[in-house]
Structures are given as structure tokens and as C-alpha cells.
Design a protein around this nucleic acid. Sequence first.
RNA 1: ACCCGGAUGGCGAAACCGGUAGACGCAAGAGACUUAAAAUCUCUCGUCCGUAAGGGCAUGCGGGUUCAAGUCCCGCUCCGGGUACCA
Length: 816
Amino acid sequence: MRYLVGMSETVIPTPYEPATIEPKWQTRWAERGTNEARLDTAERPFYSLMMFPYPSAEGLHVGNLFAFTGSDISARFHRLLGYDVFQPLGYDAFGIHSENYALKMGAHPMELTPKNVANFQRQLERAGLMVDWRQKLDTSRPEYYKWTQWVFLQLHKQGLAYKKAAAVNWCPSCKTVLANEQVEGGTCERCGTTVEQRFLEQWFFRTSAFAERLLNNLDWLDWSPVTKQAQRNWIGRSEGAQLSFRVSGHDEAVRVFTTRPDTIFGATYLVLAPEHPLVAALTTDAQREAVREYRDTATKQDLITRKSSKEKTGVFTGATATNPATGAQIPIWIADYVLMEYGTGAIMAVPGHDERDFEFAQRFKLPIVRVVAGPDDAADTPLGDAAYTDDAQGRLVNSGAFDGLAVSEAKRQVTAWLAEGGHGTAVTNFRLYDWCISRQRYWGPPIPIIYCDECGTVPVPESQLPVKLPFIPDFKPDDSGISPLARHEEWYRVPCPTCGKPARRETDVSDTFLDSAWYFLRYPSAQHTEVAFDPARTRKWLPVDSYIGGNEHAVLHLLYSRFVTMVMKDAGHIDFEEPFTRFRAHGMIIRDGAKMSKSKGNVINPDVYMDEWGTDAFRMYLMFLGPYEEGGDFRDQGISGVRRFLDRLWASVRDVSSEGTPDADVMRKLHRTIRKVGEDSAALSYNTAIAAMMEYMNTVRRSERTPHRDELLPLVQLTAPYAPHLAEECWEQLGHHTSVFDGGWPAFDPALLVEETVDLVVQVNGKLRGKLTVPIDVTQEAAMALAMADAGIAKHVTGEPKKVIFVPKRLLNIVV
RNA sequence: ACCCGGAUGGCGAAACCGGUAGACGCAAGAGACUUAAAAUCUCUCGUCCGUAAGGGCAUGCGGGUUCAAGUCCCGCUCCGGGUACCA
């Protein structure tokens, strides 16, 4: 350090003051349009997307900032690599979150939301993100939801939007229908109230028709494996057979889905879901009363009791069916452990080889037959107190001609045999169901449909969009189960667009997930008023090159976005069917080992930390506290280390000299650091990239010389994605007049990475006994000779070595 | 129950393909500077035995493979997330 406090020269070190330089650069970026992408003329477009927040009144959460910063670093890094990076951001402002908050505060969402958005905007601008704010979106603005409604109409046009009465999850507290995804363990995801069943006419999208395609494309998408796995599980493909059981004395057959057609010889009864349409027809007079009673309890019961009680219940219908394999008459039962929503709503029960059927059969004293034997079982080995479900080892028994076959082979042969006899076919079944998009709420885009007595269901003509959400003071839902809009005749009474006769609007609004299922298509064209997305812009920027977000959206948002994109492709609006080429799931920030929540009082207000430490230090700390894709534990003390690094960088840049030549050892370390930080930044290993920069900073300072300009300038560039304000300021200090982000990424010189010597580890019997500094290309013989010349090593080697393992550049292991 | 993750010093964490376990940072201790404190700088810092040299033990637990295991295999325990009677 050369702070000469004397008469001739006084250099007063300027301390690093984020409070001064951060606003300075934010203003300058805005003035110069630094963060704006060349939307029409970009040569190497790179679309960097982060999940947009819903603007809560609490303001920006650290979790948001953690997510955004990680994406921002990736975007800035790509820009430095020479890409034209477009990084937009907006607000997912519609939806139950916002509406519930307004209800709680006694405010109106139409007034509250803009305030929350403004607050978020203020916080986000502080965060120093490289966002092109010209393209900002707000899903609750008519300019946006006009096109959300347009998206609905495209689906409707293709027959992919339909209406049906469905049992829905009804939250008596939120007074609304919930998607299955919003129900957690039978309770409302938002308020924890026990969910009930109700029947309502709902709009659905045919997501299930895309199940196979949604599944197959996962094979080639560059996504985080965890996210792909979550989607695969959600789509839930299973192969099996659909089989028919003829009902004795009736024309009907009961169709069942099974993944174990090989066990049909052990099917000793059938079970229908209580809601199954055949129940009434099959039930015998003697059983009618018992069945009616059971059915009533089951269907009226709320979902939590029905699904959480493991105890099996059911009732006999009095009817029997023929097992097509054995010819036996088997009883038909109804039980609520069979779900109407999955498969055919009916099963063949094989108690010997299915745990649930086993339990049920025991309870109701139904016959249990073994048709699969394990390697240690004989055909008549009793099953004991559990079903035998091992399909990898089992072989068929008591199954006529199929005895002895392994399960997988038996599945094929039995299915073929049954198909020949006209009893069924092989089918693939999916767990994925259609997406219910109706919400009986206020704060969402009205579904653009009109009901006319003459013309039926009429889509609102595109020219009449948007169907504006009116300002109504009584937006609160009530338990009538209808939308608040249905109380406003002046709004819903409209002439039919086709015949002009009096008609009425659909009063439901659509699910928030529809808003976010296409927003990435809108960003590049956010200012276009005539189209949802401009064809040229879309061709240039989409699909998204990099999408980073939380894995909590693995199955809903990401799946719906993929679905909508496929539909748009099929409709000819775009020429790709997968919206996100690369997706990475980031981790979650916890505090003191627990998720942050208001009730635990461990919530972090980013403003406080940005005030105290500066935005750059806060950003960098968030990235340093753990692996980005795993998250980490937030600790207040941890920030000081990152801030110290920035202080040191600042001080070194102040001290820098252009005279003389840089230190050769420092330069070697520098080039290794450039390579490491580049690789780690690309891989989202931000914590180790930062560690490498710190290490290099230490090297520079420990050389105890005035740092040379060439030693520090590249470090400033490496730091830029992480601490953009500081980097800009240092870059300017070092004599530049344009943005550091237009200065490129430093290249490393491979020649400087070549090592001449290496530390060779010497082990005796696998134990570390010494280290030798040897030429990089040392031979085994030479290394051995050097090792034996080292007394500390030689004393462990008694007699002739039995074996010597030599790994060049790494180690020598002498086995005695 | 099932499907994913994860478990490494006092703490957050590193460790490419099996090859020096603990990089980087926090906290702590000692020292320098200071009237003093803060800040800054330097050093120490897994653990046990030993004055030291040196040696033993250590990556949730128990086995195994290997010259060599945090890393691979088998069997568990605990924690986090997701799904949940999916036939």
C-alpha cells in the first residue's frame, strides 16, 4: 500500500461507497440504454428468462432476488461472451394471491395491484438487474390479457377447450374452486382449510391429449434432471391393458384398466368407484339400499376424509361378472379406494398381488389366490399377511398354460390371449388429466365466451377483445359458487355476436396459470398492439435460450407453458413446440435451517441488507452462500466476507500502476482463474466462481507489490456479472468510457496454463507418506528413484515393493 | 408408502473421470497498527497422542469392491422436497 501521508503528495484513498456508485450506474444504464436489447437487429440473439414474480404487498422477497440474481449473472455473462442478450421481466399480477391479499386489507385489487407493482419496480431497479424494462409486462393490464383471451380462443377454435360438469375442489374459506394442484393433502394450499367436493360446469383444456408428446419431448430437452423427473411422474405413463368383464344377466360389461394383466387368473372380484355410471344398473334390489347409502356417504364426504382414511370400506352390489380367464363368477363391489378419475373407474382386484386389494379382501373375507410365485415359493405356498408384488422375480402359477412364465413375458402373452378372445386390448394410460381453467373469482381475465339461447356457446370475436374486467366494488366471492361477475347484469348482459339477440357473458375468469403459460411469447412483442406476438420478433428470439426458476413450478407452470406452445405450433402461429431450450432449477434460500416465513420471524428484507452492504455485496453473497442449484442457508455474518473482497478489489484498483511488467506468477494464476470463472459461470456454479475470484485477489495482494493494471483489469471483467456496479466503476477508473459489458470476456492464454512441475503425491500402501515436486513429464522410474531417495518415504518401504501404481501428474503408490 | 435430493470441521461449504479430504468464506484465538476501539493487515485453526519429529483417527451408520473410496456396489438411519389408495 502506498498511502503517502506527507507534504509532497497526499493520496486520500476513496472508500468504496455503494450508496454513491450504485445509483450512478443505474442512472447511466438507463440513460444510455445499456440494458436494452436490439430487438429487431440482434445478430446473436440470446433470450434469458426468469420467472416473473407476483407482486405481493410485502414486497420483494430474498427468494425472488436469489432467483433473479442467478439469472442476471447468466445473462450478463452471455452478453460478455458476445451475445445480444434480451432479459425481460414483468408481473404476474392477476390471481388468487393478489385477490386474497386485497380482501385481507379491505382494498380493491384494481387499486392495490398498481401500488404493489410500483413498490416491486422500485426494489427491482435497486437490484441492478440487466433488464430491458421497455418490454415490461403486467398480466392484469387489458393490453396483456386481451391476448390471454386470444390464446383461449385459439384453443377453443381447435376444440381443445371444452366445458363439462365436474367434481371440483371447493375451498369454503377462499370460496373458490381449486385446481387439484392447489390442494395439498386435502386442504387448501393457500389457507389450509379442508377442501370439499362440489359439482360445477367448468372450462377445461385438453392437456391429456398431449400427454405422450409432453412426455417424449423431455428426452431431448436440456433441463435440470429433477424437473424432468417431476414432469415424468406427473404425466404418469403406465402400460397395461383394458379388459372387459361380462356382467352376469346384463348386456353391459365392466371395463377395467390394469398394469398387471398377467395376474388375471387371480382376479377374484371387481371394484367400481362409487361414482361409476354402471353402479345403479348393476345393483340388485336386495343390495340397493346399502349401495345407495354407501354411495351417498362416499360422494358427500369431503376429499380429505375420503383420501386420508386408509381403512378400506365398500359394499357388494349383488351382481357378479365372469372372469374371462378362469370362467369363474366373481362378485362386483363398490369402494372408494377406486377413483373415478383414473383409468376406467373400475378395477379387477387381485388380492394376492396388490396391497390394496389384499387389505380389502381380508376385511371383507373375499378369496385370495396366488398366481405369482417368488423364487422361494411353491405354487401353493400361502401368501401370509401381505400381497406378493415383486414383478421382477415372480413367475406365474395357477394360471393354466401360462404357468412358469416370468411376469414381463406373461404380461405380453396373457394380453395377446385375452385380445384374441375379444376380452380386451393393450393400452397406455396417463395420470395427467385435463386442465381446469375456470375460476369463480374476480381477479383474472374474463373467459371470452358468450351464451346465446339461439346460437349456443359463442366465442367472443377476436375483434371485440379484450373483454374488459369491470371495476366492481363487491368483488368478494360468496359461497353461491358463482363468480362475483355473475352479480352484475349490466356487465354480463350483451347481444349475441352472431345473431344480435340478448345473450350473456361467461362470468368465470381464467386460471392465473394461463397468464403465465404464454408470457414468454409476449415479451419481445410487449409493445405491439395488433398481435399477441410479432412473427419476426418471435422468430428471432424464441424459443427461450435459458430459463431459470424454482422447481416448485416443475409440473404446473412449466407443463402448461409447454402445452400452450404445442397448441400454438399446431395452429401454425409459431414454428417450434418447446418453449424453453434450457431450463435450470435453482435451490431455495432457507434461514436457520428452516424455510423463511412470517410466522417464524426469519424473513429477510432485501432493502435492509442492500442499504447496509450495497447491492453488489448482497447479490454476490446470495450467490456465494451455497450452490445455486441447491440453495443455502442465509447468515447475516456471511456478507462481510464478500464485502471485504469488494473492498479489496476497490482498493487495489485505486492503487494500480501501469508501469513495469506484471508478475509472472500472478499472471499464471490469473489465466487459471479466467478459465475457472468462465467454466463455473456457464455451469451456474457461482459459489465456486466467486471463491476463485477471491483466491486470485489474495494472490495479487500477497505478491506485496503495487498491483499492475494488467493483473487487475481482467479481474474487474470477471467480477462484472456478479457485482456490476462496482465493475463499471472500476472499469471507468481504469480508463474506459464505454460499459464494461461491451468490453467482452477476457480470454485465457492456454500457454500460461501449462505447468512445468507438479506436486506428486507418494503413498505407501495407500497412505500418504510424502510429496515430491517433479517435472510434469517425470517417468515412473525417475519418480520411484526420487521417492526412495526421500528418507521420510523410504523408511516406510521395507523390502522390495510388490507393486507400484503410477498415475502421471498425480501420485505414486508403493505397495509392499 | 412411493419418487427425487441431501448428510463432509464450531458454521456456510470445496473436491474434474475413484488418486493430497476440508479450496473459498464466516466465527474463534494470537499478533501488528492505534491513547483506545472500530476498520485494516499478518499468522493459527478437523481431531487425538506427542515438547518436537512424527504417528493414529476422521466425509451419517454397517458391510463390500479396489493398490487407493466423500466419490462405485449392497443393506440401513436421519433430514429436506414432491406425489399420494394412479390399479
